[in-house]
Lab assay of single mutants.
Amino acid sequence: GKMTGIVKWFNADKGFAFITPDDGSKDVFVHFSAIQNDGYKSLDEGQKVSFTIESGAKGPAAGNVTSL
């Protein structure tokens, strides 16, 4: 299901971020390909987002990341 959280930090050079979920679970890795914005895919620290949890090769990662 959809979860919500806050972007903890975003590394534009490497194209990934971490989200701190609102439910208090541990921070979730985000690859820029999961960001659903049109055009430039970036996130801002402190931004509120919704996302799903996908199981990636290196463990859980956020999918369908959308700005709220």
Rank of each mutant, 00 (worst) to 15 (best):
K41C: 15
T20C: 10
D23G: 04
D27V: 05
W9Y: 14
T52P: 04
Q36C: 14
P60Q: 11
S25G: 12
D13P: 03
F51E: 00
L68Q: 15
G24I: 01
A57G: 09
I6C: 06
H31K: 08
N11K: 04
I53E: 03
S50V: 12
L43Q: 01
G1A: 11
D22H: 03
F29I: 12
F29W: 11
A17H: 00
P21F: 04
A34H: 12
T4M: 05
A57Q: 10
G46I: 01
F32W: 12
F16T: 04
V65F: 02
G1C: 15
G1S: 11
F18K: 10
V7D: 00
F32K: 06
K41Q: 11
F29S: 04
T20P: 00
N11M: 05
L43F: 12
G59I: 08
K58D: 13
A12I: 11
S50T: 12
K14V: 09
N11P: 01
D44K: 14
T4S: 07
E54C: 15
D23S: 03
F10A: 15
Q36A: 12
T66K: 08
D38E: 07
Q47F: 06
V7S: 00
G56E: 11
N11D: 15
T20R: 07
V49R: 00
V49M: 01
I53T: 08
V65H: 09
F29M: 14
D23I: 02
S55C: 15
S55N: 10
G59H: 07
T52Y: 10
E45S: 12
F18I: 14
W9T: 03
K26I: 09
K2P: 09
G46N: 04
E54V: 10
G56H: 12
W9S: 06
K2M: 11
F32Q: 06
F32M: 12
F51P: 00
S42W: 13
V7Q: 00
G63F: 02
I6H: 05
K26L: 09
I53V: 12
G39M: 08
G46S: 02
S33L: 04
I35H: 03
I53Y: 09
G63E: 09
K58W: 09
G24C: 05
N11C: 15
A61C: 15
K8D: 01
G59W: 07
M3R: 10
P21R: 02
W9M: 04
S25Y: 03
A17V: 08
G46C: 07
K2D: 04
L68R: 15
Q36M: 12
A12P: 15
V28H: 03
K14R: 07
K8R: 12
F51D: 01
D23E: 03
K2W: 13
E45T: 13
D44Y: 15
G39S: 10
S50M: 09
S33G: 07
S50Y: 08
H31R: 08
I6M: 05
N64I: 13
A57H: 09
S50G: 04
I53R: 06
I35T: 03
K58F: 10
K58Q: 13
N64Y: 05
D22A: 06
S67H: 15
G39Q: 08
I6Q: 04
T52C: 14
T4F: 06
T20Y: 02
F51R: 00
G59M: 09
P21T: 04
Q36D: 11
F51K: 00
A62P: 10
E45R: 12
P60W: 01
N11I: 04
G1N: 11
D23V: 03
K48P: 06
V30A: 03
D13M: 06
V30G: 00
F18V: 14
A34S: 12
A57T: 13
N37A: 09
D22W: 02
I6G: 01
F10C: 14
G46M: 03
L68P: 15
E54Q: 07
A57S: 11
Y40D: 09
S25R: 04
V7K: 00
D22F: 04
F18L: 12
T20G: 03
A62T: 10
T52M: 10
F10P: 01
K14L: 14
S50L: 08
A57Y: 06
K48C: 12
S50N: 06
G63K: 14
F10H: 03
